[in-house]
Structures are given as structure tokens and as C-alpha cells.
Design a protein around this nucleic acid. Structure first.
Lengths: 110, 110
DNA sequence: CATATTACCTAAACCAGCTAGGTATACCAC
DNA sequence: GTGGTATACCTAGCTGGTTTAGGTAATATG
């Protein structure tokens, strides 16, 4: 659903952060991000699931089939130790990047 | 070079903002962004020039061959009226997007 | 005169995200 | 019990911006 296309490269950071505190399954990750951002970020499943597989292959996430509270089966993803480290790195990278963009955007006004 | 790969989609915003006040040529745009951001953003020319052509085709920028202050010939790019409008739109989109990302990142700690 | 800097360009490859499908289970209304 | 919606997962193929990796040419600089 067209509206809000992502700025490439942010998706993995968003996912890592979303499962930082507690493992979640893919569908829940997408829902949570959508709700946390009041719909501004609405992840396509065709982007979300491949990203989860990517992160698992890189060893930043680990996955496990479990039951949800409503009794459905779902694949829960949680941060690995390396994933936690990478989350820090990516957060800093994001901060540096947005800071730099802001430096360009705000050159005159503020 | 390698270090700081862009978050796709930001480049056009950066360019539009950089030529907002006064037209600049491509090489100068790249240099200015690099200097404004202390090297954090270092645009590849292979990304910069195609982006300029794209923006011109979309009618957001107009170009003209002129001489630099040092007597070299260079293609200067300036905002069109539509470009100015789009710059506003893209700035808002950027603000909304980064705000949304921040909402996800900052859920707990701050 | 060799090298660095300025200043431009483009073709090919890469790859993340989008499009657009598909499967299956659970719940709810009619 | 059938149809529709929400949950929950998946993948193949396309698109398109960025990177890679070249290339040309004029002007400084040592």
C-alpha cells in the first residue's frame, strides 16, 4: 500500500530495536512498528520477512517456533549477543547520519 | 568511498536544499555537503550526477553552463518553482520519517 | 612534465524494498 | 457452515537508487 516508502537501510535497525526487550514474531513486529509510529511506518511483508531472514543469516537474530498468547504458531525472533552489539552500532550510525542531514537542512534557518 | 553509505532516497533532498539559496554546480554540491557534514556524507559521483539528471528531468532543477569564479566551465543547477515546492514536501516527509524512526528507537531509554 | 584537483559523464552490478502473488489457521457474523 | 476478516507465514520477480569502476578533459602545482 503505497503511501510511505522507506528510506532504505532503516528497516533492519527498526527490527533490531523492536525485538530488543523481548522476542516477537514477524507479524507482531510489523504491527508494533505501525502502531508505535501511528501508521507513518507501514512495513510491507515482502520487505519484513526477507529482512528477518537476512538478520538471522547474519547472526544478529535467532528464531524459534512458539505459540502466541492466542494459541497460534509463530516464529519468534530475538536478539543475539552480536545482534545487541550491532543494534548499538546501527543506532549510532543512524544518529550520525540524521545529524549530518540536519546539518545540511538547517544551514540557514535554525 | 566506502565508509558512509547513504540511506537511499535522501540524496535528492540534500541536493535540493543545497542549491536552494544559490545555484551550484555538481562538484560544488558534493563538496559543500561533504564539508557541511564534516565528511560524514561523502557523495559518490556515480550517485550525484545521475541524481542531478533525474531532478532536472523531473523539472525540479534547471541547469546552465557557466564559468566558476576560477574560470572553469561547469554546469550550474538551480531550483525551479516546482523544485522549491518539492523541497518543502520532501523536508516534511523527512521530518515525519525521522520522527517515526525516533518513536521506535526511543520507546524506552530515550 | 608528472601529479593532484577540478569538473563532468556513464555502463554494469548489487541489493533492499515493492509488487503481487501464494498457503493456512482462527474468529466472527449471518 | 459459509464468507469475510485478521492473524501468520512465505517467495519470485521487478524496480530503481547506490556503488563500483571505469572514462574524458582542463587547470594548478611542484
Amino acid at each position: 500500500m503505497g503511501g510511505s516508502d522507506l528510506f532504505t537501510g532503516t528497516l533492519e535497525l527498526l527490527i533490531l530495536r523492536t525485538v530488543q526487550e523481548t522476542p516477537l514474531h514477524g507479524y507482531a513486529i510489523g504491527k508494533q512498528i505501525r502502531e508505535t509510529t501511528s501508521g507513518v511506518l507501514d512495513l510491507e511483508e515482502g520487505a519484513l520477512y526477507p529482512a528477518l531472514h537476512r538478520l538471522r543469516k547474519k547472526g544478529w537474530l535467532e528464531s524459534e517456533w512458539r505459540k502466541t498468547t492466542t494459541g497460534r504458531r509463530a516464529k519468534f525472533y530475538g536478539l543475539t549477543a552480536e545482534g545487541a552489539r550491532r543494534l548499538e552500532d546501527e543506532s549510532e550510525r543512524w544518529a550520525a547520519f540524521t545529524g549530518a542531514v540536519q546539518a545540511v537542512l538547517g544551514r540557514s534557518g535554525g
